[in-house]
């Protein structure tokens, strides 16, 4: 079976006889209700897949966030340990027992200079 294309003459073509390739295509293929249903189902599936992909990506971020949280906790713990060590090293008892302190002598007397 053959069919004849129907040409569409735009107003511009009518006026200037240009744009000769401008056509209005009318498909001879008709989509029935089954095809429509399948297409809609396919579209829903694609949209669903897109949603699932996005949700999975979000979950991926959750894992990254969890990993970063763990790193922060680990670093905080190391920081705390260093602070404790620093406090121990600068504790009065440690300072008193340091070699520098041991070589110090008590002043015999204290003098104040008045202005």
């Amino acid at each position: 079976m053959s069919h004849t294309p129907t040409y569409y003459n735009s107003r511009r073509q009518q006026s200037f006889s240009r744009n000769q390739n401008t056509t209005r295509f009318q498909s001879a293929i008709k989509l029935g209700p089954v095809a429509h249903t399948v297409l809609v189902a396919l579209m829903i599936t694609v949209l669903g897949l897109i949603y699932v992909t996005q949700a999975t990506r979000t979950t991926g971020y959750d894992y990254q966030a969890q990993k970063i949280d763990s790193q922060i906790a680990e670093l905080n713990q190391q920081k705390s340990e260093l602070e404790v060590e620093s406090a121990r090293l600068t504790a009065l008892e440690a300072v008193k027992n340091s070699t520098v302190a041991r070589e110090m002598v008590k002043p015999a007397s204290t003098q104040y200079v008045s202005e």
Binding site: S80, E83, V84, A87
Partner: peptide
């Protein structure tokens, strides 16, 4: 100066 701290 710190007298009491926390340690894990």
């Amino acid at each position: 100066v710190k007298l009491v701290m926390n340690e894990t």
